[in-house]
């Protein structure tokens, strides 16, 4: 158990500065979003704001659209690029633990960080919105931002897969379908349109967990 704590400790040391920076960015985006909502409410009048939202659809928190994606990518980069530099991953995989467990714990760390951001940010955003808007609009906002935050999880796993891949050429090839799948999360549709599709997005995320193991296998086979 302590051994896995050590791996988490290593991941924390690598990523802590980036996590703190992104927490500040998220906080800033949240504060700014609410400032803009309040300003729009004052300028338009709340009833016009409500009516516009009902008529045209929910469109809050646009500043958060790509933040979870950015977080996921940065997490993967800060975790795994140092491992591939000078092939340090050899040291990590040489630890007296099953190799798949090592990779799994590293991935679990990244997913946990991303999930923590989601579980803190989303409820806070919706709670803030609920002070000024009825529950239907808050629920609409939830369905609007959910795919963006799920994209963060997917982006982390896909970026991890790419970063852990030992061959540069293969990284470029992996990027193409990876970017394609990430675009599934950003189809530019109305709030709530993703309701029947969320299950598939979650499915992609669960599948993508396996990809990094393939890159690690290729690393162990000596591909370069």
């Amino acid at each position: 158990m302590f051994m896995y704590q050590s791996i988490i400790y290593k991941e924390w040391i690598k990523t802590r500065s980036m996590i703190v920076l992104m927490a500040i960015v998220f906080l800033g985006a949240g504060i700014y979003s609410f400032m803009k909502i309040a300003e729009t409410g004052r300028l338009m009048g709340m009833i016009n704001y409500w009516e516009g939202t009902i008529e045209k659809g929910v469109s809050f928190f646009e500043y958060f659209k790509y933040l979870p994606l950015l977080l996921g990518i940065l997490l993967a980069v800060t975790q795994y690029v140092p491992e591939l530099q000078f092939k340090r991953l050899k040291l990590t995989l040489h630890l007296p633990l099953p190799e798949k467990n090592i990779i799994a714990v590293m991935l679990a760390y990244g997913l946990a960080v991303e999930l923590l951001f989601i579980l803190i940010t989303v409820p806070l955003l919706l709670l803030g919105l609920s002070f000024g808007f009825p529950r239907e609009i808050v629920w609409g906002a939830f369905w609007l931002i959910l795919p963006w935050f799920l994209a963060g999880l997917a982006a982390y796993l896909i970026a991890s897969w790419i970063c852990l891949e030992p061959q540069w050429k293969q990284r470029v090839l992996d990027f193409i379908p990876g970017a394609g799948v990430i675009s599934f999360f950003f189809m530019g549709v109305k709030a709530g349109a993703y309701q029947p599709f969320v299950i598939y997005l979650v499915g992609f995320i669960l599948l993508a967990f396996a990809f990094s193991f393939y890159s690690a296998i290729r690393f162990k086979e000596g591909k370069s």
């Binding site: 193409i176 379908p177 394609g180 799948v181 599948l207 993508a208 396996a210 990809f211 393939y214 296998i217």
Partner: peptide, 12 residues
């Protein structure tokens, strides 16, 4: 894992 990856890329 190879099959899963293959299917993933195929769907994309």
């Amino acid at each position: 894992i190879y099959i899963i990856l293959l299917l993933f890329v195929t769907i994309a």
